[in-house]
């Protein structure tokens, strides 16, 4: 191969490319089977008619999308009004996921910064510590979160014990509980990319800024943050996207009032009351929203990278 490359024949390059394409085949197959095919199925299902006990009838229909956006009364014969139920759930999901992302950022950034500024040989240990809670199943972690936060749970006991409060704070079944749950579920996805970015950061830039009369916080804002922005954006995406479609934390910690889009979709596919086309349509709407948000992020990211290069 090396000899061929040295002779500079374009034929060699072509064979090389061909071999590379074949080697990529398994990845493409996995992506095709497990990503592309389900999405296509969802797309198709969302435009079909529902079967009452789950499943679909192969008859094209816009009923699922219609149901999501419009209210035509109980029997479907009234003039169409905007249906706010699902849009509200949707909006709540964005809001909850956003709040969880912000919470992760506020806690995750200093954590990542701390780890990345430890001596090099102890850094893996700190990263390892971050991952420990994630050896336990997400469901169990979320349930134990509920036990921790409930009115007679250790948190409230502690706060009452210290005399800070007289009666328990109701956390479970609030938006905040959901945000906490999401934050707890996805924190490492915030910490790790930021950690990687800070670790790559050249700290002599901070010294240079200090040398040029910049106080610490100005250095952080004008020198450090722009340099690690790609890591921060990646962390935000990695927390926001799964939070948005999450159903465990909202179900277990939020209760019925704090329904999120993930739970809505889950409900359409499980149990007898299911409505597959509607679940598929909600999924497609979720997917579209996430894609739009990702595109906005990605544009930010490429801007940051252009600036960084």
């Amino acid at each position: 191969m090396a000899a061929g490359a040295a002779s500079g024949g374009s034929a060699t390059t072509d064979t090389y490319k061909e071999a590379r394409n074949w080697l990529l085949l398994p990845s493409w197959a996995v992506l095709g089977i497990f990503v592309l095919a389900p999405v296509c199925m969802m797309l198709v299902y969302s435009f079909l008619t529902k079967e009452f006990r789950g499943g679909v009838i192969w008859e094209p229909s816009l009923a699922a999308y219609d149901q999501f956006f419009f209210d035509r009364g109980l029997f479907g014969d009234e003039p169409a009004k905007i249906e706010w139920t699902y849009i509200t759930i949707f909006w709540r999901s964005i809001w909850q996921a956003g709040a969880a992302t912000l919470l992760s950022l506020v806690i995750g950034f200093p954590t990542a910064y701390f780890i990345a500024t430890r001596p090099e040989r102890v850094r893996p240990f700190w990263v390892f510590l971050i991952t420990i809670p994630y050896w336990v199943n997400l469901l169990i972690r979320t349930v134990s979160m509920k036990f921790l936060l409930r009115d007679q749970g250790p948190l409230n006991d502690f706060l009452i014990g210290t005399g800070l409060i007289d009666s328990p704070i109701h956390i479970v079944n609030t938006n905040f509980a959901v945000q906490l749950g999401l934050f707890y579920s996805y924190l490492p996805f915030m910490v790790l990319p930021i950690y990687a970015a800070v670790e790559r950061y050249n700290f002599s830039l901070s010294e240079a800024a200090a040398d040029l009369y910049a106080p610490k916080w100005v250095t952080l804002r004008r020198i450090v943050l722009p340099a690690i922005k790609p890591g921060v954006i990646a962390g935000c995406i990695l927390v926001f996207v799964p939070s948005m479609g999450s159903f465990l934390a909202p179900d277990l910690l939020g209760g019925a009032k704090n329904f999120m889009i993930g739970s809505l979709i889950e409900e359409q596919f499980k149990g007898n009351a299911g409505n597959w086309p509607f679940g598929a349509a909600a999924s497609m709407i979720l997917l579209t929203m996430v894609l739009i948000i990702l595109l906005i992020f990605a544009r930010q990211q490429s801007k940051a990278e252009n600036a960084g290069s």
């Binding site: 002599s204 830039l205 240079a208 290069s309």
Partner: peptide
């Protein structure tokens, strides 16, 4: 030594 110019 490595100039430490602000890359952005």
């Amino acid at each position: 030594q490595n100039y430490a110019l602000f890359p952005h």
